[in-house]
């Protein structure tokens, strides 16, 4: 049985994590490599690093970071943020990233998905979609949710899959930061509509939310940031909780 994946997400700026964390084990709260290693030791199934650095020079520090993470970690990880060209992807993969995540650039130039899938294989191309429910249904938003578009979530998700994305990372902006649970109805619709895996994001606040996102939302993986960073939920506890609820998860010995 394929295990449901638990994926902590780290926001990176200029090679450092954006929010400090309060792990006792952590000597340097802003060091993404150390933090990633702790998550990996705790049994995270994958990690996602989202780079929010603004300038190109600062993005170079991202490559160093990816190299260090690849050297230290023995689980897969995805890198996203500001990827607009094929060369961005090849350099990240060469540094040891397993997958890349693209978002706004895919909306602005959908052929980028085809190009990346052809060049690197679908399995390493995740398309991230941020959306919010409006009076006219779920609409895709860009630039970290700041720019609304007329694009319908479900139409866009279908197109993304048809163009060769390997996975979709769906963030409900309505749920993000609320800690009141994931957008399960919408997730279930996406999951039953598509034949590629869906990573759910936005709304994790307690263990039960993960049970629901797998059982009701039919998600293949669930992403969260702050609840893991602030140690509100420890990954081993979450996994044994899910296991007791008959959800297939990888437990490490």
């Amino acid at each position: 049985m394929l295990a449901k994946r638990i994926i902590p997400c780290l926001d990176i700026k200029d090679g450092r994590t954006v929010k400090g964390v309060n792990f006792i084990e952590l000597r340097d709260a802003g060091d993404p490599v150390e933090q990633a290693k702790i998550y990996s030791d705790q049994g995270a199934d994958e990690l996602i690093f989202l780079d929010i650095s603004a300038t190109n020079e600062k993005r170079k520090t991202l490559h160093d970071l990816v190299l260090q993470v690849a050297a230290r970690l023995n689980i897969p990880f995805t890198v996203g943020g500001g990827i607009t060209r094929c060369e961005d992807v090849s350099s990240l993969l060469e540094c040891g990233a397993d997958k890349v995540s693209i978002n706004s650039a895919a909306v602005r130039k959908p052929e980028l998905i085809d190009e990346l899938a052809r060049s690197f294989g679908s399995q390493c191309i995740t398309v991230a979609i941020d959306a919010r429910k409006t009076d006219n249904g779920w609409k895709v938003h860009l630039n970290g949710g700041r720019v609304p578009t007329e694009l319908n979530l479900f139409d866009w998700a279908k197109e993304v899959a048809a163009r060769g994305a390997g996975e979709i990372l769906f963030t409900s902006m309505d749920h993000d930061g609320t800690k009141s649970g994931f957008a399960n109805k919408t997730l279930a619709r996406l999951s039953s509509m598509l034949t590629i895996p869906i990573i759910a994001s936005g709304g994790a606040g307690k263990k039960e939310h993960f049970r629901d996102v797998f059982k009701i939302g039919k998600a293949d993986a669930a992403l969260a940031a702050s609840i893991f960073h602030y140690n509100e939920i420890a990954i081993p506890d979450l996994k044994s909780f899910l296991k007791n609820k008959n959800i297939s998860v990888r437990t490490t010995t």
């Binding site: 394929l2 399995q123 034949t195 590629i196 895996p197 293949d220």
Partner: peptide
């Protein structure tokens, strides 16, 4: 070839 709407690729941890 999926039988019951299983997702392809097979991505993740399996036994």
């Amino acid at each position: 070839r999926p039988i019951k709407r299983e997702k392809v690729p097979h991505i993740g941890w399996n036994r």
